[in-house]
C-alpha cells in the first residue's frame, strides 16, 4: 500500500466543526463538533426532537446551517456525493406511490446516471443483486404499498446498497420493523463494515443501542458524548441527555 492511500484511509468519514442549525430562528443544533472515523458503525442517539434527523440532513446539505463546517471523507459534500448513500426516515415518503420494489431500488442508480440517461442492463443487474442481498427477491415485483414496514425498510436499504457508497447515512432504519428484518439489516451493516464502509444510523431505542453500534453519539441540541460504546453508554450521560423523557426504572439494569 502506498503512502497516498494510507492518508486517504486515515481521513474521518465525517468531520463537523462548530455546526449550528436553526429553524425559524429556534436553534435545533448548537455548536456541534463531531468526528466519525471510517469503517465504524456509529449510532446517533437522543430523545425525540433532539435534532438527529437535522444532523443527518446537514451532512447531506439538505438543510442550510447558520454556521459551521462539514467535511465528508475530507472533501466538500458536492465533491463526494457519489460516495454517499442516504436512507431517509421511512415515513418521509409516500408509500402509495405507484412503483414496485424493483422500481424503488433502481432509483439508487440515478445518481451515477445523472440527468437524462436511462438505466440499462448494468443498473438492472445491480438492482437485482441488492434486492437479493436484503432477501427481497420474492417481492421484487410487488407494489410498495403492499409491503410490511420491515419489507419497506429492506427496500430502502437495497436502494442504498445499489449506490455502492463508502459512507451510509440512515435515519431510524430500525423504527417499526420486525425482529427478523432488524437482524438481517444488522448483518448487512457488519458486512459493509467488513468492506471498510462507514455506517451512521440514527437510533433512539436505548435497549439495543450497545448491541448494534461500535460507537455512539448522544445528542440533544448539543452533543453530550461521542465515542466508543464502552465510554459513552453510561447512565449519567444518557440521563443527562434524555432528561425527564427517559424511563429509568425500565432500563436501569441495562445501563449498569
Amino acid at each position: 500500500m502506498n503512502s497516498h492511500q494510507v492518508t486517504v484511509n486515515n481521513l474521518p468519514a465525517v468531520e463537523i466543526n462548530d455546526l449550528t442549525v436553526a429553524y425559524n430562528e429556534k436553534p435545533v443544533l448548537w455548536d456541534i463538533d463531531l468526528s466519525i472515523p471510517q469503517g465504524v458503525i456509529m449510532g446517533i442517539a437522543g430523545p425525540n426532537g433532539a435534532g438527529k434527523s437535522t444532523l443527518i440532513k446537514s451532512i447531506l446539505k439538505l438543510v442550510k446551517p447558520i454556521a459551521g463546517k462539514i467535511k465528508i471523507l475530507g472533501e466538500d459534500y458536492d465533491k463526494v456525493r457519489k460516495r454517499i448513500a442516504y436512507v431517509p426516515q421511512r415515513s418521509a415518503v409516500d408509500w402509495d406511490f405507484p412503483a414496485t420494489v424493483f422500481d424503488v431500488v433502481m432509483m439508487g442508480t440515478y445518481g451515477q446516471l445523472g440527468w437524462f440517461r436511462r438505466p440499462g442492463k448494468i443498473q438492472k443487474a445491480l438492482a437485482f443483486d441488492a434486492i437479493q442481498r436484503v432477501g427481497m427477491e420474492e417481492y421484487a415485483d410487488r407494489q410498495i404499498s403492499q409491503l410490511s414496514g420491515g419489507q419497506q425498510q429492506r427496500t430502502f436499504i437495497a436502494r442504498a446498497l445499489v449506490q455502492n457508497a463508502d459512507v451510509f447515512l440512515l435515519d431510524e432504519p430500525f423504527a417499526g420493523i420486525d425482529a427478523k428484518t432488524e437482524k438481517s439489516i444488522m448483518q448487512i451493516f457488519r458486512e459493509l463494515k467488513g468492506e471498510g464502509k462507514t455506517i451512521i444510523a440514527v437510533h433512539h431505542e436505548l435497549i439495543t443501542l450497545s448491541d448494534y453500534f461500535d460507537m455512539i453519539t448522544v445528542l440533544n441540541i448539543k452533543i453530550y458524548a461521542s465515542g466508543k460504546v464502552e465510554d459513552v453508554y453510561k447512565k449519567e450521560i444518557i440521563y443527562e441527555a434524555y432528561g425527564g423523557h427517559f424511563n429509568f426504572s425500565q432500563n436501569e439494569s441495562i445501563l449498569d
Binding site: Y86, V93, G111
Partner: peptide, 19 residues
C-alpha cells in the same frame, strides 16, 4: 421520466443525488 419519479417519490434523495 426518471427525474420526475424520483423527485415525486423521494424529494430528499433526489436532492442528495444531485438533481
Amino acid at each position: 421520466f426518471k427525474e420526475l419519479n424520483l423527485t415525486t417519490f423521494d424529494p430528499q434523495l433526489s436532492e442528495v443525488l444531485g438533481f
